[in-house]
């Protein structure tokens, strides 16, 4: 447990020391909020404020949690720490979870940034009508993102090309999860795919809480936890296999 916390703290410290990260935390939310603003400006019947704040906030959180975790694994490899981490008495999954938590906390900063930008600069009229549900939904979001981060981290651990594939999926995922504009603008099949992504459920959960609609909050919330738990289980199983393969193939030290 302490190892996981230290891992998270280390992650924060180590990451904040990188200027490119400081840039991403501050700038990315602004870019996405601005984009949403222009996409949605003239659409009637869409709660623009909710899309801008929740949508771009979630994008920041999501990319912090997932993509920086993946990048970190790459960096560990290049720095030659990877092999050491594999053979400490602390399970590698614990170390990775610590890192993901650390990155998610960074994502918080990003989310706060997009809220400030949207309300102060874009003058979005954002209000949360069911604050308790919103907080609950938010916690659910974090837990659920951990699950899918674990899956991606194990894929990245195994294969260096997984990174390219997942990077390529970053934007399509934003589209199908409805964080940039409403899902109803998408064809049916894309909406179906969207429901496999925790980001979609997180968005629906938080939007329902913001709008004060418990009836649409709960199904989305359970969907969020359900997908998150599913990915978490898959991630654990994958990790065991991945670590075994790594020792057999012997490429933990190559990059």
């Amino acid at each position: 447990m302490r190892a996981a916390l230290r891992s998270a703290a280390m992650q924060l410290k180590n990451t904040l020391a990188r200027q490119v990260i400081q840039f991403i935390i501050l700038i990315q939310p602004i870019v996405f909020a601005t984009l949403s603003y222009f996409i949605l400006r003239h659409r009637p019947g869409v709660d623009m404020a909710s899309y801008i704040v929740i949508g771009s906030g979630l994008i920041s959180l999501w990319s912090a949690a997932l993509f920086s975790s993946a990048g970190d694994l790459d960096r560990e490899r290049r720095m030659g720490n990877f092999e050491y981490l594999l053979v400490t008495p602390t399970p590698f999954e614990t170390i990775i979870l610590g890192k993901i938590v650390g990155n998610t906390l960074l994502g918080f900063g990003s989310m706060a940034m997009s809220y400030l930008y949207a309300t102060l600069v874009l003058r979005a009229d954002f209000a949360v009508r069911a604050p308790m549900l919103f907080v609950l939904g938010f916690v659910g979001t974090l837990v659920s993102f951990l699950g899918i981060s674990l899956v991606l981290a194990s894929a990245f651990t195994l294969s260096r090309s997984a990174r390219l594939i997942v990077n390529g999926m970053e934007y399509p995922i934003y589209l199908v999860s409805g964080v940039m504009f409403p899902l109803t603008l998408l064809p049916q099949w894309a909406q179906v795919i969207g429901h496999l992504v925790p980001l979609t459920w997180a968005r629906a959960t938080l939007q329902a809480a913001a709008a004060g609609l418990p009836a649409s909050f709960w199904p989305a919330f359970w969907g969020l936890l359900g997908t998150g738990a599913l990915y978490y289980l898959v991630g654990r199983v994958m990790f065991d296999g991945v670590l075994r393969r790594l020792r057999v193939r012997g490429d933990a030290g190559v990059y």
Binding site: A3, R6, S7, K13, N14
Partner: peptide, 21 residues
Amino acid sequence: RSLYWRLTGSDNMRYFSDLYR
């Protein structure tokens, strides 16, 4: 290789001490 260059020497030591419980 295999140290966290952006952290201090004692940070590195603390981290690995934790990992070794």
